[in-house]
Design a protein around this nucleic acid. Structure first.
Length: 771
DNA sequence: TACCAGAGGAG
DNA sequence: AAATCCTCTGGTA
């Protein structure tokens, strides 16, 4: 048994050598493959013989073979061009493409090691769970005398380390006298870097995890290594950490020892107001993590004694501990995705869902002798991006409070449409069918005889998931149960991204027609469902994409509601094709609907379910979100609207008094573009620009946490990043009139309350009160 | 008051 | 570097 951790290649004697890093029972084993040669394909315009002749004469070409491959569902002859070195692929692809006989160059953009994994059928991370991998987390604290640390000057103060075999360390140039068993004081920065590297080697660490190591810890460590004239030798046989460009960000690659940065993983997996280590830790374990403000670190370090100084070391240790704990919770899903998609875990953990689906498709295409489509050029990408299409249908809700609400939804609506209607580029408007059954309202139809490529791949994912879920039901052992659960989650993630992939302008298998057909069929089914529900005596309250909220007016018996729901589902499902199914999703004794995508429900246990309202949004102050939730509870659970009104009046008073803590007033908003690119910068951008001048670092992707203070004219003028605001310095008027009241009044208006009443101005007489 | 840019949610 | 639909805010004219 062995598990593939990493794959790369090197050049030896002018020839490429694939290096496969396996973890075995004994340790890490490198397998070298010397007989795999890089290649790519070319398709010919007309006569391929002339093209073949010309390519053969090119420098660096080893051989040219004709092959039969499937291209757009047609079998055709293509030329496979084998070259000496991976770099020859990139240099020759242009030359070949420029030949007048050449139509297209294909599959010339796959990284060589990934090409090998696809061709050889090797699965990364197989048996990872049985291999008892050694995982270590690593984190650093650095000196920062002037706000942001400068890697060319400011030294590393501590390196913290925690592994899943129980070793915990903070190596530092101070702190040996603190009596903390994990602190080891060393003589110099160089010594602590070296100690860290030696420990990774000695402990036989397989996987290194960090929290934002890609963009902070590793680049900084590398810079400090250069300063100290040492190599950041963390890889197999002392290979140096390598920084790679990955889109907007960096990736820190370690040869043979995958580095998984939990920060991008968490951003993909969770939806949180902020993604600092403590936020994610709280989300996963519901425990507060100790924190020290970056601005305080320099002072605490220089003081060099006392409780704060000790706490600094405890904080550093807890960073490594919590990173490890997060990794232990989330790595199994990363391993599973890596296996299904067949990308090594370093790459897979950094790829977005579109890339993952695409890699899976490339692998499946190779398997079926299908020629992989090229990535779109920038021009085609822009063209595709410019044309959007009609998506899902949303029912305008019957606004206000409702009792006894029934929720039905389609199980995996889009995946089931794709498989049931066989939606694919290769099956669209085929010549062999009349197009009766598999027809979309967009006018296109899909072949009823030959199964398309994407429906086949998707069908296999769905089928595998059904199998895993069956096993899961039978399994008793908790460890195996959680493994199976991770497996089904990974399959679900991939299956659910297939529809989005069709409409993704950068996709190789892009098809606006397919995406459009899927969405149109979705609309057709939800419309039909609504119509049938009405015919069966249900009142339609709301619906979005694949769901309908219904009620039976005048029926109070839960038993009768359930019975009629069951009967309705049974009849409706008997009329649905293929894999499609409408399911009973829930019963809610009470709910309030505000607008499309904004509503709240109370389930039978009295639990509140809020959608789209401020409570669910990161860009509203906590005090508002808390109050709105209390109001909803008073209204839906306790049916006490006077209590709801009192809650609001009380909070208005507290805000006015000026002693609401800043953390409850903070607003979180993301910087979604370059700070200079804004046509109309919002308060968060103005706050970030001000903070930038005062030494804080802000860039695209960061989330700004700010307060509307009392100083300034416009709201933007008043916005300041929370770090620079003193307790009590907030604009009470703004928080009452622009935050609290709009959020709660949307709900309380259903009960005829007015804003002035909430502000303690008494109920104003309106025209209505005379009627 | 109407409109736009920007953000973040739902499914 | 998965799609579209939708609401809401703050700024501007």
């Amino acid at each position: 048994m062995k598990t593939l951790l990493d794959a790369s290649y090197t050049i030896r004697d002018d020839k490429p050598v694939i290096r496969l890093f396996y973890k075995t029972k004994k340790g890490v084993d490198v397998e070298e493959v010397t007989d795999f040669q890089p290649y790519f394909y070319a398709t010919a315009r007309g006569d391929w013989k002339e093209l073949e002749k010309k390519i053969r004469s090119m420098e660096g070409v080893v051989s040219v073979d004709g092959r039969e491959m499937i291209d757009h569902e047609i079998e055709r002859r293509v030329l496979r061009i084998t070259v000496k070195q991976p770099r020859d692929v990139s240099s020759l692809r242009g030359e070949v493409k420029d030949l007048e006989e050449c139509e297209e160059v294909r599959e010339a953009d796959l990284p060589f090691a990934q090409r090998y994994l696809i061709d050889s059928g090797i699965t990364p991370m197989e048996y990872a769970e049985e291999m008892d991998l050694r995982v270590a987390s690593f984190d650093m604290e650095v000196y920062n005398p002037e706000g942001e640390p400068r890697p060319e000057k400011d030294p590393i103060l501590m390196v913290s380390y925690s592994d899943n075999k129980g070793l915990r360390r903070v190596w530092s140039t101070k702190g040996g006298n603190l009596g903390l068993e994990y602190v080891v004081e060393l003589s110099s920065e160089k010594a602590l870097i070296k100690k860290f590297m030696e420990t990774v080697e000695e402990r036989g660490i397989d996987i290194i995890v960090t929290y934002n190591g890609d963009n902070f810890d590793f680049p900084y460590l590398k810079d400090r290594c250069s300063f100290n004239r040492i190599t950041p030798a963390l890889g197999f046989n002392g290979a140096a950490v390598k920084m790679e460009r990955r889109g907007m960000n960096f990736g820190a690659r370690i040869r043979g020892r995958p580095h998984v940065d939990m920060f991008p993983v968490c951003r993909q997996l969770f939806n949180l107001p902020r993604y600092r280590l403590e936020d994610v830790y709280f989300e996963l374990f519901n425990e507060e993590k100790i924190d020290i403000k970056a601005g305080e670190m320099r002072r605490i370090w220089d003081t060099g004694e006392g409780e704060e100084f000790k706490a600094f070391f405890e904080y550093s240790m807890s960073d490594a501990d919590s990173t490890l704990k997060i990794a232990e919770a989330l790595l199994p899903l990363q391993y599973e995705l890596s296996r299904i998609v067949r990308l090594p875990v370093y790459e897979c953990s950094r790829t977005a869902s579109g890339q993952r689906v695409e890699h899976l498709l490339i692998r499946e295409a190779h398997h079926r002798n299908i020629l992989v489509p090229n990535k779109p050029s920038d021009r085609i990408f822009e063209e595709r991006k410019g044309k959007s299409y009609t998506g899902a249908y949303v029912v305008d809700p019957v606004k206000g409070v409702h009792d006894n609400i029934i929720l039905f939804d389609f199980r995996s609506l889009y995946p089931s449409i794709i498989t049931s209607y066989n939606i694919d580029c290769s099956t669209i408007d085929c010549d062999c069918c009349s197009g009766e059954k598999h027809r979309s309202p967009t006018g296109h139809y899909f072949c009823e005889k030959r199964k398309g490529f994407i429906p086949t791949v998707l069908g296999a994912l769905v089928e595998r998931r059904v199998g895993v879920k069956k096993e899961l039901m039978k399994e008793k052992d908790p460890a195996r149960k959680s493994l199976l659960d991770v497996k089904q989650q990974a399959l679900k993630l991939l299956a659910n991204s297939m529809y989005g992939y069709f409409g993704f302008p950068r996709a190789r298998w892009y098809s606006r027609e397919c995406a459009e057909a899927i969405a149109a069929l979705g609309r057709q089914y939800i419309h039909e469902t609504i119509g049938k529900a009405r015919k069966s005596g249900f009142k339609v309250i709301y619906g979005d994409t694949d769901s309908v909220y219904l009620k039976l007016e005048g029926v109070d018996s839960r038993e009768e509601i359930m019975e009629r729901s069951g009967a309705f589902l049974k009849r409706l499902n008997s009329e649905l094709p293929g894999d499609m199914e409408l399911e009973f999703e829930g019963f809610y004794p009470r709910g309030i609907f505000i607008t499309k995508k904004r509503y709240a429900l109370m389930d039978e246990h009295g639990m509140l379910l809020v959608k789209g309202l401020e409570t669910r949004r990161r860009d509203w102050a906590d005090i508002v979100k808390e109050t709105q939730e209390k109001v909803l509870n008073a209204l839906l659970r306790e049916k006490d609207h006077e209590k709801a009104a009192d809650i609001v009046k009380d909070v208005v008073e507290r805000i006015k008094e000026g002693n609401v803590p800043l953390e409850k007033l903070a607003i979180n908003t993301q910087i979604t573009r370059g700070l200079g690119e804004y046509v109309q910068p919002g308060p968060h951008i103005i706050a970030a620009r001000k903070a930038l001048k005062e030494g804080l670092d802000f860039k695209q992707g960061n989330i700004v946490t700010y307060i509307i203070t009392r100083r300034g004219d416009s709201i933007s003028d008043k916005a300041r990043v929370i770090d620079f605001v003193k307790e009590g310095d907030y604009d009470a008027d703004y928080y009452i009139n622009n935050q609290l009241l709009p959020a709660v009044m949307r709900i309380l208006e259903a009960f005829d309350y007015t804003e002035d009443e909430m502000k303690g101005l008494g109920k104003q007489l309106t025209l209505d009160s005379f009627n």
